[in-house]
Amino acid sequence: MTEKKGTAEQIFGDMVQTIKDRQVELDKAIAEYRGGPVKPAMDVMEDDENIMVKTDLPGVNREDIKIDLTEDTLEIKAEHSEEVETESEEEGVTYHKKERRYASAARTLILPAKVKLDEVTAKFDNGVLTITMPKLEKKETFEVKID
């Protein structure tokens, strides 16, 4: 009986991991279906002094990105309009695939620590937005002696 339970747990764990691995694709499909903004892929990292966020925004121009920040939340919005093709450019063209999508992107994140708003930096290079946010307070740990 225990062996069956272990196998079932393994199968369920594999399914959950597959869903997690495909989350970005799923978010894009849902956004496309609803017609809303795409949720861009994001990495959030933290060290002793900073919180760093890297967000993929391919095909977006720097001037179309808006970053709103509070001490504990980050919101990134990117407006992206479809390339306009004139009738003459489309004549005689047969699309075999047309998968590239032009949509707005938006993502809000609750930060794991408060940040110094006036010291935040952002860099946009090759479609990747990197935001570095110095923490407001360093977390200190104290050893408690047991009597």
Score class of each variant (00 low, 15 high):
6 G>E: 06
7 T>I: 13
9 E>V: 08
9 E>L: 14
10 Q>A: 06
10 Q>H: 11
11 I>K: 13
11 I>E: 13
13 G>H: 01
13 G>Y: 00
14 D>H: 05
14 D>A: 13
14 D>W: 04
15 M>D: 08
16 V>Q: 11
16 V>H: 05
16 V>L: 04
18 T>I: 08
18 T>V: 08
19 I>Y: 06
20 K>R: 13
21 D>L: 08
21 D>I: 07
21 D>F: 14
21 D>G: 10
21 D>E: 13
23 Q>D: 08
23 Q>E: 11
25 E>R: 10
25 E>C: 02
25 E>M: 07
26 L>E: 01
27 D>Y: 04
27 D>S: 13
28 K>R: 13
28 K>G: 10
28 K>Q: 14
29 A>P: 00
29 A>C: 03
29 A>G: 06
29 A>R: 11
30 I>T: 07
32 E>Q: 13
32 E>P: 00
32 E>L: 15
34 R>S: 06
34 R>E: 12
34 R>V: 01
35 G>H: 06
37 P>G: 12
37 P>I: 00
37 P>T: 03
38 V>Y: 11
38 V>E: 11
40 P>R: 03
41 A>D: 10
41 A>Q: 10
41 A>E: 11
41 A>V: 03
42 M>V: 10
42 M>H: 04
45 M>T: 04
45 M>D: 02
45 M>N: 07
46 E>Q: 15
47 D>G: 01
47 D>H: 07
47 D>M: 07
48 D>Q: 14
49 E>I: 12
49 E>G: 01
49 E>A: 14
49 E>Q: 08
50 N>I: 01
50 N>E: 03
52 M>S: 12
52 M>P: 00
53 V>E: 04
57 L>S: 06
58 P>L: 00
58 P>H: 02
59 G>W: 08
60 V>C: 02
60 V>M: 01
60 V>K: 02
60 V>T: 12
61 N>K: 15
61 N>C: 00
61 N>Q: 14
63 E>P: 00
63 E>M: 12
64 D>N: 15
65 I>D: 10
65 I>H: 04
65 I>F: 03
65 I>S: 09
66 K>D: 07
67 I>K: 03
68 D>G: 07
68 D>F: 02
68 D>N: 14
69 L>E: 01
69 L>S: 01
69 L>Q: 04
70 T>Q: 07
71 E>L: 03
71 E>D: 11
72 D>I: 08
74 L>K: 05
74 L>C: 05
75 E>Y: 04
75 E>G: 05
76 I>Y: 08
77 K>N: 09
80 H>D: 08
80 H>R: 14
81 S>V: 06
81 S>G: 04
82 E>Y: 04
82 E>A: 15
82 E>P: 07
82 E>M: 12
83 E>Y: 12
84 V>R: 12
84 V>L: 11
86 T>V: 09
86 T>I: 07
86 T>N: 08
87 E>Q: 11
88 S>F: 14
89 E>C: 03
90 E>F: 04
91 E>F: 06
91 E>R: 11
91 E>N: 08
93 V>Q: 05
94 T>Y: 05
94 T>V: 14
96 H>P: 00
96 H>L: 14
96 H>G: 05
97 K>V: 10
97 K>R: 09
97 K>M: 12
98 K>A: 14
98 K>P: 00
98 K>L: 11
98 K>D: 15
100 R>I: 15
100 R>N: 07
103 A>F: 03
103 A>Y: 03
103 A>R: 12
104 S>I: 00
104 S>E: 11
104 S>L: 00
106 A>P: 04
109 L>Q: 01
109 L>V: 02
111 L>T: 02
